[in-house]
Structures are given as C-alpha cells and as structure tokens.
Design a protein around this nucleic acid. Structure first.
Length: 975
RNA sequence: GGGCCGGUAGCUCAGUUGGUUAGAGCGCACCCCUGAUAAGGGUGAGGUCGGAGGUUCAAAUCCUCCUCGGCCCA
C-alpha cells in the first residue's frame, strides 16, 4: 500500500484512560506516609464520631504478651481483628477497637532477672519495689515497640489509649475481681501437688511447662514386703513397683493396684513376688530383675485378681529407720493403674502426684511436705535429711532432681540395695518429662499451700441455671450435669458449660474443644510465688487460719492499689487496710501473686465495663484468638466472668489456626523456617500480608512462604490494576452532566448491576460469617471474570471511540462509577493502604475511604430474568472463543474482531440481536446458522483506521467507519 | 502416650444430606494485542481427592486401620 497517501494518526482522537495512579505500587515506601496521614487527621476518632449513636459491635482484644517483636501469629491475629472491625464499620456499625497488652508475669520477670545476672546483681538483694519498677519499664518498652509495629500493619485502633494489665487502675480492678471470688466463698487455700520448679522456686502454670524427651531417665524396681494379706501366699511376698523418680520413694506412703487387673505371685530365687499378669509387661520387668526364663527357677505360685488385694498391707523398705518409715503402707485400689509399663503396682506419694494425692486423700493419708522449695528434703527428714551424712561426714542430701542423687549408684538406690529392696536400677529410660520452659530445668510435682478457685462449689450468690439454659444437655449424651442442677444453685463449671452452649463459635468445632476442657479441668490454681504481678491481696487470721472477708477492708485495698500500683500491698500498710478494729499482728498478709491468666481473664471487667473507654460495652460481641486460647484466654475469661457475673463475657468466639512454613511444618527459630512479618512488610508491604492473612483458610493451620506471597502479590496487582483502569476511565467523570439513570442503561450495564448486587450480597454474608477467605475470593473473581475479561473488554470500544455524549458511553461510565464506589468500599478493609491511595487519587479533598459505609444497593438491580439470558449468552460466548481459537492458531485471523461467526440459532438466548452478539463476542459479525456448531471465517470487511473494528461501512482499510467519522468530524470542528 | 483438628491440581481455596467425565481463581505453556502496555485478551496442559482395607448399585464424601502435620494435654 505504498502508493496510498499517508494515513492520519487517529490516536489523539481516541479517549484513552487517563490517570497518574501508578501501576507499580511501591507499598513499603508508600504505606508509612499514608499511616502518618491517618494519625494526622485522627482517623480513629473521626470514625468514632461518624458512627456515633449507631448499633455497636464490640471486638474485645485479647492482650498479647508485652515481650519481644511482633511475630507472624500476632500479624495474622491482628489483621483478622482489624478486618472484622473494619467490615462491621463498613456495615455502618460503631465498631471501636481498644488494643491491650498483658504485662505481668514470669517471662518478663525472667528477662529482668537475666539483666540482673549480667550485672552480677542478686535479685534477692533488690527491693521488690525496685524490681517491679524495672519489670514495668521493660513491659512498657515492648508495648511501645509492638504498638508501632501494629500501626505499621495498618491496624486501626485506639493507639493513644490502649489498655495495659499493669496500669494501676487495672491492677486495682483485678484485685477487686479477686475479692469478688473471696466474698462469694469461691476462694480456698489448699494443699495440692502442683508443678514446681526447684530452680526458680515457684509453682508453674501449665503454660509455663514444656515436655522434653529424655533418654537417660532413671528407672528402678523396688520390692515392698507384704506383711498382711487375706491371701496366705502373699504374706512375706514382695509387691514390686517401678518408678522413674527414685526420689519419691523416701516419701512413699502407699501402693496402688488396679482392681480389674490380674496378678501373679511368682516364686523366684527363693522369694515370692507380686506382679501384674500381663505378658509383655511381666517379661520385661523380670528381665530387668535378671530373671532368666530358661533357668526354670521361677514358678507361678498363684494367680489372683486385683480386687483380692484389698486390705493388703506392705512396709517401706526403709522401715528400720522408724518413725514415718515404720508406718504400715496400705495397698489401695486405683482406676488409673495401667499395664502399659511398670509392674501393674504403683507406689503412692500424695506429695508428688495428682493421682497419688487424690487416692491418698480419699483414704485419709495426708501429704507430709518433705521436699522444700529448693528441691531438698527438709532438715528433719529421717532419710536423706540434713543429718544424713556419708562416710566422710558430708551431707548426702541433694536436690531431688539432681541426676547423681537418683542414679543407680546414688544414695537412694544404694540404701535400697542395702535393704535388699532394689530389684533393678538403670538410667536409660526414654520418656518425655516436664521442664520449666524458661530455665529448661526439670520440674517436679510438689505439695504446697496454694490458692484455688473452686470449680464445683454451688454458688449461692447466683441464680440457678434456668431450664432453657440446660437445653444443651443430652445433645451429645455426655453431659456431666445431672439432677443436682435443679437441686440448688449451680457450680461455676455448670454455669460455664451453660454459657458455652449459648455462645456462637466460628468455626463451630471450637465449642466442643472449649467444652471438653471446661468439663475436665480441675480447680483453678491462681497463686504464684513471684514478684511481678497482682497480689492476692487478702488477709488470713493467724489463729483460726480463716480468710478475712470484709468488703470494707477489700475496698480500701482496691483503692490503694488503683492509686499506688501493686506496690501498695506491703506490710507497712496492713493497719491502714485492716482498720482501727483489727490488730495487724493477728493477720497474715498473703504474699503470693495472681496467675497472669487471672489478669487477662479480668480484662472484660476493667476494660469493657470501665468508664475509661466509654465507647466499649459488655459483653463483647466477639473474642478472636488463636486456637491455643481455648486453654487460655477464652477459658480464663469465661471462668472469671461466670464466677463473678454468672455469664460469659462474649457472645461469639472466633478461633484461628497457626501459621506454618511452606511445607506445613511448625515454624521455629532452631529450624530457621520462621517468617518475620516485619521483613515481609519491608519487602512486599503491609497490604500484602493483610491480603495473605485473608486469603488462606485461617480457621485451620495454614502456610506462608515466598511462593504463596508471590501468588498473593499477583492477586494484589490484579485488584490494583482494576482500580487503575477505573480511575483512568473515570477521569473527569461528572454525574450531573454525564450520568445515566440505571433504568435507561443498556442491558449489559443492567446485567452488571445484577452481578454487582449478587456480589454485594455474597460479601455481606461473608462479613456476617467472618469468612474473609470467601470475601477476598469473591472480590478477586468478580474483578477477574466479570469485569476485566468480560465487561471492560466488551466496552473498551465504546469507551475509547464513542462520542463522549453518546448514551452507551455515558451509561458505561456511570456503571464504572457505581462499580468504583462499591469496589473501593469492599476493598478498603482488606487493602487498607491501597484503598486510601486509590480514594485520594480520585477524591483528593475527602478525608479517608475508611470513614465510608457500604451503600444499600437498590433492590431492583436484581433481575433474574435478564441475568438468566446473559448467563446463557456467556456460555455461548465461551463456545465462540473456543471456535475462534483454531483460526488464530493457523494465523487465518489475528483477533476476534476479524471473525465472522455463525452460531446455531437454537443456541442463541432470546432477546439478542446479531449486532448485540457481535459486540458481546467482540467479533466482526454474528449470524444465525443452521448447523449445530459454531463456525468461524475471516471477515471480508475492512478495518476502521480509528476503532480498528472490521465493518461493512469502512470503504478500505484505514478509512473510518461511519461512527468514527462522525466523532472525528465533530472533534475537528470543535478544535 | 491421650483428646481434638486437618491432609482435594505447582499455589490459595470450593466441593451441599454419598449420585453423571472432581471445580474455581492464580501460576505455568502456547498464542493474540501493542490505544489499561512491567498492563489487557484467548486457548490449553495439570489431580489414582495422604495411603490401605471395608460398607454400598455408587465414596473426595460413611466406617476401620495406617501415615504425615498441627493445637491442647500428660
């Protein structure tokens, strides 16, 4: 075509999208600036004003521990919380978010002690007040660090006034909660074996204990001589026990057998031994003792049933020491005795085991408190006490978890061997054993005086559970509550179980998990022998041992602590609290502090009910934490609230799983597979972490890694470019002069209204279900499938080439505006920074997208008849695309615009003209054919030099079609 | 060791009370466009639904066992 005149370049006459909004996000660089803007305009406060008086939605923040940087679990948890709050706000509710931190407790105390050790200071020489001040400072430091990190994540909340469990008012309120338990008789001091760390000299909470596998644990078999029995063959025989804790033998007080287990009396080496008749177990045990089955010197004397052992009495191998050791040891029936390992007979020390304690208590055998806090036997202990010296006159006593002390050659085994009671001793047993998670040192069970909240006491101060509230009973047929409930007031456990039944759980399986834990849990051990925490601020009468329950005294204590921090609980102020009518010398001031779970379990009281945060209210609509909090905060909050208020502090509980590495393995520093959210924010941006958190199935364990984040980045870019296109296509759009009523719009636009309305309904359901995975998926799929690949592609021609005042083009732009207004709101809770960037690009004068609410879409946008036709058309469209493909492959045509398409007329939905279809299929022409398949040929029409469509009214390639001719003529005239 | 939960394409997820050739989006491969351009469009290849038994006319779906992983507990 070299002989043709130079064609005019029509590019300047085409209305291309126009925007400064960059395709490349540069989030790590851009986000901090947007964050700064939010702080500057006071976004959180503005939002509170905007939603003032609306229905409230209260998400109560579970306080993270103020120790260390934010990790991926915090990030996930807070993104979910923030998204809940933002989506509720989007619905128009007033959804405040007051973040909080858990500040007391052992880990912080430990850190401060570590600093002391580095400075060669002894904690015991530092006044408690000073020590606590340092703990306070340490916690505050990490609160500040985490606060900045969470802000950077885009979490919108009351950052200028978070709640801290160490604020004096909080400390006072926590004591007030404790006093409620005391005043209603739910608190008691008991002796119970608790996990005790001899190294740290404190009782440990379950959460402070971790189990490690040992391969060199001692194991010994000890023979107890039977002195009385209803079975003659047993008198003079030996009951053999097996234990991995030789140090408990000096505190033995009984033996336990399984009543339904069968036992053998076996004659071996001239002695008779009692052992369970359990093949593997018996062979294994006797093998340890050195029994050779081939020698034939062992023979079965008699087989008996466990229950036959009732009334049997044995004596301690060290009975010659007299005193404690001379007392007879009864054999007791214990259901917990198994034949998994050992001998089928278990030695009992009520001081050092839960089963032991319970069984002995039931049989009138009390603990003897033989082991002191540092792990040694007390001075006056007959065996291995302070006066027990070796040949060189050195004390043989050591900490009971000292390895040589328990070794086969150690003092315990040596003495037992000498007494002829040690059948075997070695240090090669493999099992998992509890350790302190801070010091990594072994812990022991030890009986000490501790404070407990009773779980099964009937609470007279609360109304009985109503029949309606008992309706959950029998659902699973495994109820632990029976006719007792109706007999009187409920117990704390019963109230809690009733509340679990009436709470919403997302996902539902959380209910079973919490319920089974509450059903099975023991009394709540709330005392700790530490310094950094809220004191168990109570007095005990020295003479009577009774707890002083005087509301006036308690009020004075609460006020003092609320004013002066926990430091107010000191001896010098006892008189002030007790008042003029009592003599401080008559009272013991309890020196223990509270379990930190009691602190955090009380947050509903000192945060939700406090007038310090008037925007909050109780009970909360939602608690949202990781699934580990079934054991933790969900439960401690439930018990605290049920014990003081008779109801749960929450209406719903949402739990999420844990974040694993790309292979689904747990992250750990030692494996080096951790993902640091701070680094991800530096590399990808906070919006990417947020989108990741909402894209995975967070109700289960889920994964993170480079490949996953890359995929999230792809989803992000698609959303971002959709907004870039909308911004460009809508540049200079003015509804007043250009807008089209939806009723006047072409069918395609009205179909998109329908699709949008459907999406809107889906998203609202997802919000109600807290199903953000579905939310993000639906949003992304809509932008990909309905918009980018369908609507935008079809309407490209109208947008670029139609006259600006043409109805179709105006209708399209109106539709784009509707889409923009909806999509930017849907996106705002997810991509908080990007949404703001988009919003401020289009509306530089408006404060923030995050103040906006969802619009209620007109009901008449739903048009099922229209949608049915269009859905059918889209299916046909897919067939057409498929039919065009071979021609493109063989280069007969390049684009669909060059295709003449013949479609079986029977396949065409009603109401579409051939021209409609050509436009919808982005083809040259569409005709109705007689055949049963879609046929495609290359069109013979020429290509318009402006709109590039191939049309019959184009005289030659490069000339204008009539539509473009009109538009260009008008533009030329205007110019 | 015990309780509970989970294992569907390379990735993230759907799969209703068991019912036709197991789906989506992304990624990938190939192609088109070059007037959303480090963008947009099209087509296509990917799965013995962790494994093995069993129930059933029929199982990703129900049962048993095993395995891997997780949370909690000991």
């Amino acid at each position: 075509m070299s002989d043709e005149p130079t064609q005019r370049d029509y590019r300047p006459t085409v209305f291309l999208p126009k925007t400064d909004f960059p395709m490349k996000a540069g989030l790590p660089h851009k986000e901090p600036g947007i964050q700064a803007k939010w702080e500057e305009i006071g976004l959180y406060e503005k939002l509170r004003e905007a939603r003032s008086g609306r229905e409230k939605f209260i998400l109560h923040d579970g306080p993270p521990y103020a120790n260390g940087d934010m990790h991926i679990g915090h990030a996930l948890n807070h993104v979910l919380k923030d998204t809940v709050v933002r989506t509720q706000s989007l619905l128009g509710k007033d959804a405040p978010y007051v973040p909080g931190w858990d500040c007391h407790g052992l880990p912080i105390e430990w850190k401060v002690e570590e600093l002391y050790r580095k400075k060669k200071l002894d904690k015991k020489e530092v006044p408690a007040k000073e020590f606590r001040a340092e703990c306070r400072e340490y916690a505050q430091k990490w609160v500040d660090v985490q606060r900045e990190q969470l802000k950077r994540l885009g979490i919108n909340g009351r950052w200028d006034k978070p709640y801290l469990t160490m604020r004096p008012k909080a400390e006072g309120a926590i004591v007030a909660e404790l006093h409620k338990f005391a005043e209603t008789g739910q608190l008691y001091r008991g002796a119970k074996p608790v996990m005790w760390s001899p190294v740290e000299e404190t009782a440990l909470a379950d959460a402070e204990v971790e189990y490690q596998d040992l391969t060199d644990s001692p194991q010994i078999d000890v023979a107890f001589e039977i002195v009385e029995s209803a079975i003659p063959e047993l008198v003079g025989a030996y009951a053999v026990i097996w234990t991995t804790t030789p140090w408990t033998i000096p505190v033995n007080q009984a033996l336990a057998y399984g009543p339904s287990i069968n036992y053998d009396i076996i004659d071996w080496n001239g002695k008779r031994f009692l052992i369970a008749n359990e093949g593997g177990l018996q062979a294994e045990a006797m093998n340890r003792w050195g029994f050779d089955p081939k020698s034939g010197d062992g023979s079965l004397v008699k087989m008996i049933k466990g229950s036959d052992l009732a009334g049997t009495i044995v004596r301690h191998p060290m009975h010659h020491l007299g005193g404690f050791y001379a007392k007879p040891r009864p054999m007791l029936a214990g259901d917990f005795v198994t034949t998994d390992s050992g001998t089928g007979i278990v030695h009992m020390s009520p001081d050092h085991g839960e089963d032991d304690f319970d069984l002995c208590k039931a049989n009138g055998i009390d603990p003897v408190f033989a082991v002191m806090g540092d792990g040694r036997y007390r001075d006056d202990w007959l065996w291995l006490g302070a006066n027990d010296l070796d040949a060189e006159g050195k004390e043989r006593r050591r900490s009971v978890i000292n390895k040589p002390f328990n070794a086969p050659e150690g003092p315990i085994c040596s003495d037992l061997r000498e007494a002829g009671a040690l059948l075997s001793a070695s240090a090669d047993y493999q099992h998992s054993y509890p350790h302190s998670w801070r010091s990594k040192a072994k812990v022991v069970y030890r009986c000490t005086p501790q404070w407990f909240i009773a779980i099964d006491e009937h609470l007279g101060h609360l109304p009985a559970i109503s029949p309606a509230e008992q309706s959950w009973e029998g659902e699973g047929g495994d109820s632990t509550i029976d006719e007792e409930v109706t007999a009187g007031s409920p117990t704390l456990r019963e109230i809690a179980l009733g509340e679990i039944a009436s709470t919403r759980f997302v996902p539902e399986k959380g209910r079973n998990r919490l319920r089974s834990m509450v059903e099975g849990r023991p009394d709540w051990l709330i005392s700790r022998q530490r310094a950094w925490g809220v004191p168990i601020a109570l007095f005990v009468h020295r003479e009577s041992g009774e707890l002083l329950v005087d509301p006036d005294v308690n009020r004075r204590i609460q006020t003092a602590i609320a004013n002066d921090t926990v430091d107010a609980w000191e001896e010098s102020r006892a008189a002030e609290y007790l008042g003029p009518d009592r003599n401080p010398d008559d009272y013991e001031m309890i020196g223990d502090i509270l379990d930190v779970w009691f602190d955090s379990g009380s947050t509903h009281a000192f945060v939700l009910e406090s007038d310090e945060w008037p925007e909050l209210q109780s009970p909360a609509d939602l608690y949202l934490e990781g699934s580990d909090q079934h054991r933790g905060w969900f439960q401690s909050s439930l018990l605290e609230s049920c014990g003081t208020r008779g109801r749960a502090p929450y209406k719903a509980v949402l739990t999420h799983g844990f974040t694993m590495d790309p292979k689904g393995m747990k992250m750990s520093k030692s494996l080096g597979n951790t993902v640091d959210p701070l680094k991800v924010m530096e590399q990808y941006g906070a919006d990417i972490i947020r989108l990741w958190a909402l894209s995975v199935d967070y109700t289960e364990d889920h994964r993170i890694g480079d490949e996953i984040l890359k995929g999230v980045g792809d989803t992000y870019r698609k959303l971002r470019n959709t907004f870039r296109y909308l911004l460009g296509a809508l540049s200079d759009f003015d509804y007043e002069s250009e807008g089209v009523e939806t009723a006047q719009m072409p069918e395609l636009e009205r179909y998109m209204l329908h699709r949008l309305a459907k999406l809107d309904a889906n998203l609202r359901t997802a919000i109600d279900d807290f199903d953000f995975n579905e939310y993000v998926r639906a949003l992304a799929e809509f932008t990909n499938e309905d918009l980018s690949a369908f609507f935008f592609d079809i309407r490209k021609d109208r947008l670029y080439c139609d006259a600006p005042d043409g109805l179709e083009r105006r209708a399209y732009r109106t539709m784009l505006d509707i889409l923009f207004q909806a999509l930017i709101r849907y996106t705002a809770p997810v991509l908080v920074y990007t949404a703001e960037e988009v919003w401020s690009t289009r509306f530089p004068d408006r404060a923030s997208i995050h103040l906006e609410e969802l619009h209620a879409l007109p009901a008449d946008w739903i048009d099922d008849a229209l949608a049915g036709r269009f859905d059918a058309m889209r299916e046909l469209r897919e067939d057409v695309m498929e039919a065009i493909e071979p021609l493109r492959r063989e280069k007969t045509i390049r684009s669909g615009l060059e295709a003449d398409v013949s479609v079986p007329s029977s396949a065409i939905p009603d109401g579409f003209s051939d021209a409609d279809l050509a436009e919808l299929f982005i083809a040259a022409t569409v005709v109705r054919g007689q055949g049963s398949t879609v046929e495609v040929t290359r069109t013979s029409d020429n290509k318009c030099g402006r709109c590039w469509r191939l049309l019959p009214d184009v005289a030659e390639d490069g000339a204008l079609c009539s539509r473009c001719d009109e538009v260009v003529t008008e533009m030329d005239a205007a110019a």
